[in-house]
Amino acid sequence: MIIVQKVNKFFGDFRALNDISFEICKGEIVGFLGQNGAGKTTLMRILTSYYLATSGKVEIDGNDIVRHSLLCRKKIGYLPENPPLYMNLTVRDYLKYSASLKDVEIKKQKMQVDRVLDDCNLKDVQNKHISILSKGYKQRVGIAQSIINDPQVLILDEPTIGLDPLQILQVRQLIKRIEDKRTVIISTHILSEIEQIAKRVLVIKNGEILIDRPISVLLDEENISRFVFVVKGDRNEIEKVFINSKEIISESFDSCGDVHSVKVKVLQNWTNHNELIHKIIRAKAELVEVKKLKPTLEEVFISKVSNQYIK
């Protein structure tokens, strides 16, 4: 669906993208992950033909992005980093305008506008001016605009930036609802974001792709497991148990009265749970709860980026 080959982008002497290559298949949901200034926006602007690449090639559904620019743009829905909104239009007028610029047949325009108003929960503000909407609403209007012509490819640049937790949740649910059967690219500098939406991540740093892997593989590669033991009893005795267990790589205590929650890291092939539990009981402590924690993308990311790549 999307083929990117050796794309470079220079702003003057500054190299914002460095030999980027990847392919994205139809229906894939891919996250671009990277810190601010990594080059995510620049890459998305090239994919949407807002910027021209300095060198390299981009194809959307078999069409070259430079030679068949209009055809490619027809297939793409794009939410830029700052939602592009005309403040003194109403939500409905803006969506109608988007529909006519994006080749929605005149007969179908009203229907499409109503559909995205519905999809994005914007029905109740459809006749309000965009300028008076809250940030969460504005973001949803931006997303509504991007899906007005049912594009095959959806490109969302930091769709949840600057929103409060509830709004983030709403936007995330909205994306889940509209990603159906589409190819979706979503960028963010927040790791947990990608973990919940995308199936594959491209980690971008200084204009280069560091990692390109399915999220599940990325998480499995990490060979460390983490557990939380919630233990009731004397802190000193319990500390001794954990510190003296050789298999435990590291532990941290978080106490509240005589209840202690101990986070431990062990190698993934660790099997001696029973021995540790016996030791705890022998120390006259009570084991309240044991939980295995799934590794988060955040940890994987930090370990990857810090160990393997920053040298």
Binding site: R73, K74, Y78, L85, Y86
Partner: peptide
């Protein structure tokens, strides 16, 4: 200034 140029220029409009 407002960023809508990015919208306009990425729609299939010549």
């Amino acid at each position: 200034f407002s960023g809508t140029m990015e919208f306009l220029m990425t729609t299939p409009t010549s």
